[in-house]
């Protein structure tokens, strides 16, 4: 595992969720809000089409953050995000992060999820605990 220092970028994640991802995410999590799985319903409530679950995108942020610790699910101690926009299936999402602090085993990472020009999650702070060795 590489040692992380303040100012380092973590490995970015690029993913283009296919049009059925919201359906599969709904099935996996039980969140069947129709704005995510029914484009006609979404348009009826003023959206351009069905939108991705915000917690799905937060899941990608968590995955990217844990990736900086070799994917160990124990490493991610906390994650705090603000949802600032909607995102859509069939368009690429890019997750990037920068280390903002290192204190002992604890590494703090500032993470952004963007789709096109829109930062759909920002001010995201992940705290990783990476034991030495």
């Amino acid at each position: 595992m590489s040692e992380l220092n303040t100012g380092d970028s973590i490995e970015e994640l690029k993913v283009t969720p296919d049009k059925y991802v919201p359906h599969r995410y709904a099935g996996a999590t039980g969140d069947f809000n129709p704005i995510h799985i029914d484009p006609e319903f979404a348009k009826m409530v003023g959206l351009p089409g069905s939108i991705l679950h915000g917690l799905y995108v937060m899941g990608l942020v968590a995955k990217t953050s844990a990736g900086a610790a070799g994917g160990d699910p124990r490493a991610l101690k906390s994650l705090s995000v603000q949802f600032r926009g909607m995102s859509f299936p069939e368009q690429e999402i890019t997750i990037t992060g920068e280390v903002t602090g290192v204190e002992g085993d604890q590494v703090t990472v500032d993470v952004v999820a963007a789709q096109g020009d829109s930062q759909v999650i920002r001010n995201a702070t992940a705290v990783l605990e990476i034991p030495p060795g």
Binding site: L55, S78, L79
Partner: peptide
């Protein structure tokens, strides 16, 4: 309503 923010401490 929108989901504005979320925090988890594991």
């Amino acid at each position: 309503m929108v989901h504005g923010g979320q925090e988890f401490q594991w």
